[in-house]
């Protein structure tokens, strides 16, 4: 088992929480894991990414080589495109459809969708809307994680345990909200996949 994942988004969107949940679940599974993240200046509304590598064999590099990521999880549509050189030919993208516009020259969404439509394997969903409708507005990133779960090579129930572990100290209410967000993200993505 070997999964290389790029997580991307804009500083403050919560990609590190996604990475933390997956990492916790992977460690409990006895998998090897490396996760490189960005701190500091880049977090102030700039583009952020994290390289997450899971394997049942020891992992060498903290960074994923070009063309080897099986999955890009992006909380922002344009940011998913920035990391395409890392994606395998048959790799999957799981993407939030809603742009985070904090630059004056943000491209036309039609052009972004045109680029995304060229890629063979993708799931695009509005995680903020889904999270809001589910009453978990603050867990849009976990909706995203739910949608990406089928591609992680880790059982759904183990990801649930990861959430319990990571959010446990914030109380039962927060844990349940995130579990709910995970489930609805998973369900919506399954629906979308069946339509393809």
């Amino acid at each position: 088992m070997k999964v290389d994942i790029i997580l991307s988004g804009v500083g403050g969107q919560g990609i590190l929480s996604i990475a933390a949940v997956i990492g916790e679940a992977a460690l409990k599974e006895g998998l090897y894991m490396k996760q490189a993240e960005v701190h500091g200046m880049s977090q102030r509304g700039g583009d952020v990414q994290s390289h997450l590598r899971l394997s049942d064999q020891p992992i060498a590099s903290d960074l994923i080589p070009m063309g080897q990521a099986g999955l890009i999880i992006s909380l922002e549509p344009m940011e998913s495109l920035r990391y395409l050189p890392y994606l395998k030919k048959e790799g999957w993208l799981v993407i939030n459809s809603q742009p985070f516009v904090n630059i004056p020259d943000y491209p036309d969404m039609k052009m972004i969708h045109a680029e995304l439509n060229r890629l063979p394997n993708r799931v695009v969903l509005d995680v903020e809307l889904i999270a809001k409708e589910a009453g978990s507005a603050r867990a849009a990133n976990i909706v995203m994680l739910g949608a990406a779960t089928p591609f992680l090579g880790i059982e759904y129930s183990k990801i649930e345990n990861g959430i319990r572990q990571i959010f446990g100290r914030k109380g039962e209410e927060v844990v349940n909200m995130n579990l709910k967000a995970l489930k609805i993200g998973y369900d919506v993505a399954q629906c979308l996949l069946q339509k393809v």
């Binding site: 880049s42 700039g46 070009m66 063309g67 050189p85 030919k89 630059i103 491209p107």
Partner: peptide, 16 residues
């Protein structure tokens, strides 16, 4: 090297 390239439409997003 990768299979895909970064599309031209992708813009810089500096911190602010």
């Amino acid at each position: 090297g990768g299979y895909y390239t970064v599309p031209d439409i992708v813009r810089q997003r500096p911190p602010a």
